[in-house]
Design a protein around this nucleic acid. Structure first.
Lengths: 327, 327
DNA sequence: TTGAAAGCGCTAACAG
DNA sequence: CTGTTAGCGCTTTCAA
């Protein structure tokens, strides 16, 4: 690997000049040319590690998510990546697997590797951001809010819960169950609150007990909860799924029981990019995951550049795509 | 940020001793204790950048994939990550977006950041690995084979094409189309070859012209091709999808046309983790993506540790999950 | 505009 | 077992 010294020697200049050429500070045209020539001849690539050590920061941002296999998060990652790479930053994707310890490890690595910022969808409400914040690095929370005073981008979760439920109500369903993620994740709690409000407003006398399930935000969570609901003495006639994967699990179980969607109403909070369902069978509250990633990345980049305004939280609107009316 | 000098001073030892404590070389028990104490007091985290610069290698491996939104690749990433983090390595996920230029950028970063190895599913047959190989870094190819003499892990692609097709033949279909990825990607070509062999063996007089489509390995590719096939004067009565996303697209279009699967036979090469189809409607050739990631990571780690045996290629067997027989 | 020189924080000889 | 010391390759004052 050629170093800046090799290039300097070949170009007949000082190492400092080579550095300047690669960092865009003023150097005479001839020397620029000479340096570029020499660099090309030696196929020189600046050593980022050395630069990082010297500068105490690197053009890398960490994106920490709880489930890399969830298309919702990969779609978000796409958004982050597009903005970041546009700005010359690379993105390190870290999968916390919804475990606080794994997450802590990645946070430690982010510090030790001098990464310049973090975008994080926390694993848990117990995620500790103290040490990372103590280093002064900007952190943007996505998808889930935190108790810290930092920038955030979230979905309109309560509204999502409400519109999903209302949609089902308008379609004529009544006993509408809700399957959400872990209760202590605010995203899940908010969506559940939206469901409860919509339902009790429409049917004040409906007994909600047994109709609400908290599960993992995964396909198996949706499956388990749906099986339970179906086993109820008085099963629901519709269900709101708290996220995309729960929706998939619930629909799978319904299908297996011969209850293909409009028969039991289904509304899913989150898109189902890879379903093969007829698009009109299920109500989908689209969550703009890519947009969330884009927004978070932009905010982070501004902070990295030194923006000092008070912490902001952006709430992203969602869009309901109704199922066709029940026949 | 505390440095080893701060820790050394507080612990009353030399910086070298601190370094030794954190790298597991022999230090007397008392000093180890003193150092650990001091480190804890200062909440010291070793600076990885400095270590990397000094050691000329870091415990980071790059995983370069063409589509981060494809569950096949994220499942693989999971496998890589599990093995890597077990061994104390972190994984940087790089999305080449099937573009050779983006891929080249990431490869350059991998060098410049001293990453110790690369696992890559190449974007294209024109991917150039020369410079990365010139640095002596181990590279493992996954999913797609390359022209380089390096380790690889691939699926039994031709066999996958054959069994998918045979399965459909056994179910009584005859005009079986094939929708695959770009012809110049060997994965796609091999699967197509398997389809062709199976079909011409069973029906030597069948005219295959028009029945074969090369598209992008994405949902829209599957959709477009399926629409074309359906518009044929003599449309196929079944279709083999060359990967999971193409399968999703094809099934979507069929559903929209009222031709739900067993009506038109469908076999998909690759799993459909998020479909809501009744599992018995479609034949799935399961590709062990996670296992591919695990295998690749293990091979890479061995190479990093200095394994010098000749390049190996591992071919992973797949497992067919048949649709129920046509009624 | 350019060069000399001093580190960034760590590791690895080399002595002791 | 432990300390001293010389860099890894780069950036960035400070002078010229």
């Amino acid at each position: 690997m050629a170093t800046i010294y090799d290039v300097a020697e070949l170009a007949g200049v000082s190492p400092a000049t080579v550095s300047r050429v690669f960092n865009g500070t003023s150097v005479s045209d001839e020397k620029v040319a000479a340096v570029r020539d020499a660099a090309a001849k030696l196929s020189f690539t600046p050593n980022r590690t050395a630069r990082t050590l010297r500068r105490q920061s690197s053009e890398v941002i960490a994106l920490v998510i709880p489930d890399i296999e969830n298309p919702y998060f990969t779609e978000m990652a796409r958004g982050v990546e597009d903005v970041a790479s546009e700005a010359g930053y690379s993105v390190v994707l870290c999968n916390s697997d919804a475990q606080v310890e794994k997450e802590a490890t990645y946070l430690r690595i982010a510090i030790a590797e001098h990464m310049s910022g973090i975008i994080i969808a926390t694993a848990d409400e117990s995620t500790n951001l103290d040490s990372i914040l103590a280093t002064g690095r900007p952190v943007v929370a996505v998808d889930r809010s935190t108790t810290y005073d930092i920038d955030g981008v979230v979905m309109a979760n309560r509204a999502a819960g409400t519109s999903a439920t209302k949609n089902l109500i308008d379609a004529g369903y009544r006993r509408i169950a809700y399957i959400g993620g872990p209760e202590h994740i605010d995203t899940a709690a908010e969506r559940a609150a939206g469901w409860r409000t919509a339902l009790t407003t429409a049917y004040p006398d409906l007994d909600l007990s047994g109709l609400q399930r908290f599960e993992t935000f995964r396909v198996d969570g949706g499956r388990a909860a749906m099986e339970e609901l179906l086993a109820l003495p008085e099963p629901p006639d519709a269900v709101v799924a708290g996220n995309n994967l729960i929706g998939v699990g619930a629909i799978q179980v319904l299908t297996e029981h011969g209850l293909t969607p409009p028969e039991v109403g289904v509304a899913v909070i989150g898109s189902l990019p890879f379903t093969t369902l007829s698009p009109s069978a299920v109500t989908v509250v689209r969550l703009p995951a890519r947009h969330m990633g884009v927004t978070a990345a932009r905010m982070l980049l501004e902070r990295i550049k030194g923006d000092k305004q008070p912490a902001r939280t952006v709430v992203l609107r969602n869009e309901v795509q109704s199922a066709s009316p029940r026949v």
